[in-house]
Amino acid sequence: MASPAPLRAAVTGAPGAGKSTLLGELSCRGIATGPEVARTILQSPGGMELRASDPRGFAFAMLEAQLVSWHDARGNAEIVVFDRGFPDIAGFLRVEGLEVPDEIDRVCREYRYNGPIFHAPAWAEIYRQDAERIQSWGGAMASEDAIAAAWRSYGYRLIRLPLAPPADRAEFVTSQLT
């Protein structure tokens, strides 16, 4: 008998808005989390070059990695909170001025998150560029708008995270998961 699928939730939003820090806090509390696949790809050899020279190819690399993360979560936990999700890929493509390919659109429509979708809004006080987070503040704001619009276009309602310390945000998320 197959294990039931877990409740799949996600944290999305602006680059540098504290998503990964929140996921780390949730993980410390025993909640299963899915990795941010884009950052993993960017940290891999050739990842930054792929993003710069072939954004469409980068989107497909994110799709492949997100599908692996999705399937890895099947039956391993009752609840999994993902660091971003499939609609983030569509949002990335839109902010790059590219069409969303049929395959990515199909996955966004068929692989549905059945838990809350938490939106980490842009937060100037904590935003920092780094080796993989190359957007200016304006670019981060444009990414946030495109990503939020993509999630909504696939029928999700976003729950805004408070601008609060990681422990408080984690408490907010866990209260919504039960």
Rank of each mutant, 00 (worst) to 15 (best):
I41V: 06
A17M: 09
A77F: 02
G57T: 10
M1Q: 10
V100W: 03
P162A: 07
P15S: 00
C28L: 12
M1E: 10
G138M: 06
A167M: 09
I117T: 11
E110L: 07
R29D: 06
A122R: 04
G46I: 03
I79T: 15
R29L: 11
I31W: 00
S20E: 00
T174Q: 12
L22Q: 00
L98F: 03
V81I: 01
S44L: 06
D54Y: 13
D145S: 15
L50G: 08
F60D: 01
T33W: 02
L177R: 11
G155I: 00
A170S: 05
V37T: 11
E78M: 02
A140P: 07
V100K: 07
R106F: 09
G115I: 05
L42W: 07
F92T: 01
R112N: 01
G97A: 09
P35N: 06
T33V: 13
C28F: 00
P45Y: 03
D145Q: 15
L42V: 06
V95P: 05
A140D: 00
A77Y: 01
S143N: 06
A140K: 06
L42I: 08
A90W: 03
A146R: 12
S53L: 07
C108Y: 02
A9S: 14
A131L: 08
M62R: 10
D130N: 14
F172N: 08
F92L: 00
D105G: 11
N76L: 15
D54K: 11
A149F: 07
F58C: 03
D145E: 15
F86V: 03
V107H: 06
P166I: 01
D72P: 08
L22W: 02
F92D: 02
A32W: 02
M62Y: 10
A131F: 03
A61E: 07
H119V: 06
G115S: 07
G57K: 10
S143A: 12
R94D: 00
W70L: 13
D83N: 05
G34Y: 14
W123C: 04
L22D: 01
F82A: 05
Q129Y: 12
R152L: 09
F82N: 08
P35I: 12
I79E: 10
G97M: 05
N114E: 00
P87Q: 07
P87M: 05
